[in-house]
């Protein structure tokens, strides 16, 4: 069993602010972190490894600095880490990114056939939730999105059983391998990395692959390979505070009355 986890290094968006004048993101001095959803993907993979036995490989596409995030993730118990890094990848949208990552998965399959690719539900910088499904489409594989975990893997029948989170309730699905799974934050949290795991990761140098190492059409990569065009970035207008009806001042009955009135006039009720 070979499980690949996709990891993205993202700016810590809790610290990103929008310049009110130019409407661009102020990225100056913003630290980078592992996309938090990817930790759930990683835990999902490690739990498959612990229960059913698997090789876990991490892949990331990003600047050379992203080896930091790969090393950090390796500490939890992954076996191998690969960074796709090349100027040709820069500016890729979700279509081009999933194209490049699917090429990396094909390349990894040459060493050991990949059975499952696991992604976080979405990234905190793009929020599109398209990359995982994109990889599935590029590879022509099954996909299980918004999963809270993989319950069972049957290597002989070549199936997996996974739970999906729905708006109301959950769904348990079985599908055939190979498959792409995207994981939500209701899944189990990442385990505590062991000390030997951390020491291994400190000594480990992730492989870096350029476009040379993967089978891709250059025209499908980067800005020119990306069908999405960003027209404008802007901060949403500040919402004004709601109306406060004070029970202390008006008394309970009148307060409820006037609150109901407000809801009526605004057409909520």
């Amino acid at each position: 069993m070979h499980v690949v986890v996709c990891v993205k290094q993202v700016p810590d968006t809790t610290q990103v602010r929008v310049d009110p004048v130019t409407n661009t993101l102020i990225r100056e001095g913003i630290p980078t972190v592992v996309n938090p959803f990817d930790y759930y993907a990683l835990e999902c993979a490690l739990s498959i490894k612990a229960r059913f036995g698997a090789t876990v490989t991490l892949i990331s596409m990003g600047p050379p600095d992203a080896v930091k995030s790969l090393k950090k993730c390796l500490a939890y118990g992954a076996d191998r880490a690969v960074l796709l890094t090349d100027r040709a990848f820069a500016g890729s949208d979700t279509w081009a990114t999933s194209y490049a990552l699917s090429a990396a998965v094909r390349r990894l399959s040459q060493d050991e056939p990949v059975d499952i690719v696991i992604c976080g539900k979405q990234t905190i910088d793009g929020d599109t939730a398209q990359t995982g499904p994109g990889i599935a489409r590029h590879l022509g594989w099954q996909q299980v999105t918004y999963s809270t975990g993989v319950e069972h893997v049957d290597p002989d029948a070549r199936t997996i059983t996974a739970e999906r989170k729905l708006e109301r309730g959950k769904e348990i699905v079985r599908t055939t391998l190979p498959v792409v799974v995207t994981v939500v934050e209701d899944a189990p949290e990442i385990r505590y990395a062991s000390l030997p795991g951390i020491i291994t990761s400190l000594r480990y140098t992730p492989e870096t692959w350029s476009v040379q190492q993967v089978d891709v059409e250059l025209a499908n990569l980067g800005l020119k390979g990306s069908p999405t065009k960003v027209k404008r970035i802007f901060a949403p207008p500040q919402r004004s505070g709601g109306e406060v009806v004070s029970v202390e001042k008006a008394g309970l009955v009148d307060a409820v009355k006037s609150a109901v009135d407000v809801l009526h006039t605004q057409g909520v009720l």
Binding site: Y192, A193, S194, L195, P196, I198
Partner: peptide, 9 residues
């Protein structure tokens, strides 16, 4: 002894 699993050195 550290606070991590298998945490002795």
């Amino acid at each position: 002894r550290t606070n991590r699993p298998d945490g002795d050195l």
